[in-house]
Each structure stands twice: as C-alpha cells, then as structure tokens.
C-alpha cells in the first residue's frame, strides 16, 4: 500500500508532464498549420510550372537530357528525409524500417534530418552527406539538396536517386513513401495540395488544357528551355518533399502528444481515486484506534 505522500508526489509529477505534453501538442498544431499554408502559398508557382512543362512537352517530341538518361544501375543513392527531434509517435520507426531492404554495399545514403543520420550511423551504413532543414523549410535549403543530388547523378557516381520521406495523407495518416528523383522518367504533375489528397482536384487541369492551343515561341529553343527548366522542376520536387515531411512530422507529433496528455489525465484520475481511498482508510483506522483507546480507558 503506497503512502499518501508517495501518491501525492506521483500525481504532481504526472500533472507536470501533462502540462509539457499539452504545450508540445499546441506548438505542433500551430507548426502543422504553418507547413500546410506554406504548401498552399506555393500553389500558383506549382500551377505555372505545371503549365510550362505541359506546354513544353507538347512542343518537344524527341527530347533527351542528361538528367533523364537511364543507365544500368550499379550504385544508387537514397535520400532519407526524417525529423530532427523525436517524440513524434511511430513516424520515424515506420520511415526507417523502409531502409532495411536496401543493399548496404551498393547504396549511398544521404540524410536530411538528424534522426535518419543517427540511424544510419548506428547501423553502420554508408552515410555520404547530411543536410539540415528548418521547421519551415526554405526553398534555398531544398535547392542545395537538389543540386547535390543532381551533381552526384551527372558525375556518374550514382545511377539512380530515390528519396524516402513521409507522405502527408491527412492529419491522422502519414505513410512512408519512396519516390524516384533521378533519372527523371516522366514529368508528373506536381501536386501542391498538402491538405487533402483523397479528394482529387481537377481545377488545375482545366486551366492548363484551355491553353494547350497556344503556340509558343521559345528562346533559344523549346528543348533548351525545357533543359533548363528540369533542374528547377527537381528543386521544386525536393522542396515539396521537405514540406510534406515537415507537415507529417508536426501532425504526427500533435497526435502523439494528444494521446500522452489524455493518458496523463486518466492516470491522474485513477491516482486521485487511489489517494482518496488511502486517505479515507487512514482516517478510519485512526478513528478506530481512538475509540478503542477511549473504550479501554472507560473500562
């Protein structure tokens, strides 16, 4: 039977912890909204980029670019976009599990985010470079990472580049996802919507199809413009990946912290009940002792 003092101490410590988790939950919620808005404000950029790519692809039939060159894969690179901090539920565990099937001799690992880098160190994998990115990812950071990947690919060091990140499906669902960056097989339309992927929006498609009829002049020529647009396209894909990863991290942390706060509340409730029981038992036994003593005196 724990003493009342022990119980009081435990309740107090749990209450303190719950205050911290509650605060973290709020912070994560705010940051998640910020990441989502960041993705939304980038929407006009995405639309325009999609439109240009669409037009260019119509006008360029036979096109090859060093970034699109397919080679037999001898060595591949994997960029792991993880979080810097823990306490975000099963996010990193799920993400890092995806690394295991990769052949450690023929794969060069790159990490963005500390957790991924730590995992690679721990499992003695070949970590080539580590990048950092802020809570609200900057386009400049994405550009740095993307340049590095492009250089490794173009120099023939690696023949394939993939990125492993957490895809933001919704606030309560995030999934690890592997996406091939290089060589560029096909230019998929960029999807700027971080908010809800389950409902496909086709507003962007309608806008671009109305302009397909326009014949553009290009300077120096269509292939040249497309060629210099590709690196930009890649930079932006990396930027989006960073945004997705951040949004996933914050929403996952928010959910984890909410669970922790709820658990703490339940614990406090149980312990308070226990504490009152112990206190009542102590009072009863004391009363009993006093009355017994009084009765003994009377006799």
């Amino acid at each position: 039977m724990p003493s009342t003092r022990d119980l009081r101490r435990r309740i107090k410590s749990i209450r303190n912890t719950s205050q911290i988790t509650k605060a973290m939950q709020m912070v994560a919620a705010a940051k998640m909204r910020k990441a989502q808005t960041a993705a939304l404000t980038g929407r006009p950029y995405t639309d325009l980029l999609n439109q240009m790519l669409g037009n260019l692809q119509n006008d360029v039939s036979e096109f090859s670019h060093p970034l699109m060159e397919e080679r037999p894969v001898k060595k591949s690179a994997l960029l792991i976009v993880s979080t810097d901090k823990g306490l975000c539920g099963p996010l990193n565990t799920n993400l890092l599990r995806e690394i295991l099937p990769y052949d450690r001799d023929n794969t060069v690992f790159l990490a963005a985010g500390r957790k991924g880098a730590q995992f690679l160190h721990r499992t003695r994998r070949n970590l080539k470079a580590e990048f950092t990115f802020k809570d609200s990812p900057d386009f400049v950071e994405a550009r740095g990472i993307s340049r590095f990947l492009q250089d490794s690919f173009l120099s023939g060091e690696v023949d394939k580049v993939e990125v492993l990140y957490t895809n933001f499906v919704s606030t309560i669902r995030q999934e690890p996802k592997v996406r091939q960056l290089l060589p560029i097989l096909e230019l998929e339309k960029l999807d700027p919507d971080l908010v809800d992927k389950d409902s496909e929006s086709d507003a962007g498609d309608a806008a671009s199809s109305s302009q397909d009829a326009t014949e553009f002049l290009y300077e120096p020529d269509a292939a040249g413009v497309l060629g210099s647009l590709l690196p930009h396209y890649l930079n932006y894909v990396v930027f989006q990946v960073l945004l997705e990863a951040k949004a996933s991290e914050h929403s996952s942390r928010m959910v984890a912290m909410k669970n922790a706060t709820d658990n703490a509340k339940q614990l406090i409730k149980d312990l308070t009940l226990e504490y009152n029981k112990v206190r009542q038992a102590a009072i009863t036994s004391e009363l009993l002792e006093i009355t017994t003593a009084a009765m003994a005196m009377e006799n």
């Binding site: 037009n55 260019l56 014949e215 002049l217 290009y218 300077e219 210099s228």
Partner: peptide, 19 residues
Amino acid sequence: PAAAGEMGIYPNHVPFVTE
C-alpha cells in the same frame, strides 16, 4: 532581364517562353 538580353514587352506580344 531575359537570358539573351533586356526585353521590353507591350500588350499583344506573341506567345513566348524564355529564361
């Protein structure tokens, strides 16, 4: 500042894409 030099554009320009 287009890649090939300064460019001035008035309304009704021909459709054009460049760096």
